[in-house]
Design a protein around this nucleic acid. Structure first.
Length: 363
DNA sequence: TACCCGTGGGA
DNA sequence: TTCCCAAGGGT
């Protein structure tokens, strides 16, 4: 790459790593080099803020302290430990991959790019992060931070929203990375992006590698990185019902094991056509069709808007009672309010439960 | 490739 | 309010 030729690479590495040794944050996954802990932290940190991850990471490792502990853990408990973190397939893939490591590699996280990349949920970033941080291998770990930082330092104008662009940055990192300390090099690049070289108003005057930065040199740091914006979320209208049986227990069901919020529990919910007849009638018909049982819906408890990365749920929340008998199953349960906290719910349905506890329980 | 897949915080 | 974002991966 042409712009790499302008770099004094040894000096850049020294300035970057020197800064990291002095300024790095004290984070729970930086206490040791245990590949399992590094792995868990990297998966949690995918598209998720450090401040959000910290308490989850601490609880998760208390509950599943080793790779073997996670491999043998009850899936429901694992999902419950992830409740509220989002992107739930991450933890399903993680447990699946951990089981594979237990069986194929005798419980030792592999240290080769090929083997580690073959594990579920381990993409190019996570593979590079584990290999460099836990095993000191000089592999690139290119995340959003690294693309932002390098786009400025090397004046790279490619659209970082395009998957194809990542390869350019990986090639650059292969040239730049310290073979003496690849762990600190990769972490320092990300730490710099998080603390100094931020998306808006970067703190260039505090930057340890300012002298190496071609964007700063030309005064275009605010123009980089180039990133096309995503499209807006699609709204979806839904009816949800907190249904009580004659014993006062609430009906919950497990979502399918693929797709949105896979394997999480929810109150019965279905899409509604607001142009059609009464919403209550539509829901009762749906319920009868699914469970062969009649219900009576009460008044609407309230409306909840829940925003996802790609869609918006407008939840119309009702209470109701179940007329006949419901046959419980592994994915269909009647539970008391004391038992319900054992089940992992998406935040949208945690909000429904809160609404019910605050206003609906007495009705 | 483009789209699917969560959540909460901050500008 | 609206928008973007935060240590991505699967399909």
């Amino acid at each position: 790459m042409k712009n790499l030729e302008e770099m004094d690479i040894p000096s850049f590495r020294e300035d970057l790593i020197g800064w990291f040794e002095k300024e790095q944050r004290d984070l729970p996954w930086r206490k040791d080099r245990d590949p399992y802990k590094i792995w868990v932290s990297e998966v949690m940190l995918q598209q998720t803020r450090v401040d959000t991850v910290i308490p989850y990471f601490n609880r998760f490792l208390e509950q599943f302290p080793s790779l073997d502990a996670l491999a043998e853990a009850d899936e429901e408990k694992v999902l419950k430990a992830w409740e509220g973190l989002g992107y739930y397939s991450r933890v399903r893939n993680l447990q699946s991959a951990v089981k594979e490591v237990q069986e194929k590699y005798n419980g030792i996280v592999p240290d080769s790019p090929k083997e580690i990349s073959a594990l579920k949920g381990v993409g190019p970033y996570t593979a590079g992060a584990i290999l460099s941080i836990a095993y000191a291998k000089p592999e690139p770990a290119v995340d959003g931070n690294v693309m932002r930082v390098l786009s400025r330092i090397l004046l790279i104008w490619d659209d970082i929203a395009k998957p194809a662009s990542r390869r350019i940055f990986e090639e650059a990192v292969r040239e730049l990375i310290s073979h003496e300390n690849p762990s600190y090099f990769n972490q320092a690049m990300m730490e710099l992006g998080a603390l100094i070289c931020t998306p808006t108003s970067p703190s260039c005057l505090l930057c340890p590698v300012r002298d190496h930065c071609q964007a700063f040199n030309e005064g275009v740091q605010d123009e980089l990185p180039v990133k096309t914006k995503k499209k807006k979320q699609r709204p979806v209208e839904l009816t949800a019902a907190v249904l009580r049986n004659h014993e006062g227990k609430l009906l919950i069901r497990k979502r399918p094991d693929t797709g949105l919020l896979a394997n999480l529990w929810e109150f019965p919910t279905t899409e509604v056509n607001l142009e059609f007849r009464s919403e209550k009638e539509q829901f009762a018909d749906y319920f009868k069709d699914q469970y062969e049982t009649g219900i009576t819906l009460g008044e609407m408890l309230g409306r909840i808007e829940h925003v996802f990365s790609h869609l918006i749920w407008n939840l119309h929340v009702f209470t109701g009672t179940i007329q006949g008998q419901i046959k419980e199953a592994s994915d269909l349960r009647l539970v008391s309010l004391d038992e319900i906290d054992e089940f992992a719910f998406p935040v949208s349905h945690q909000r429904i439960l809160r609404l019910y506890r605050e206003t609906g329980e007495i009705k």
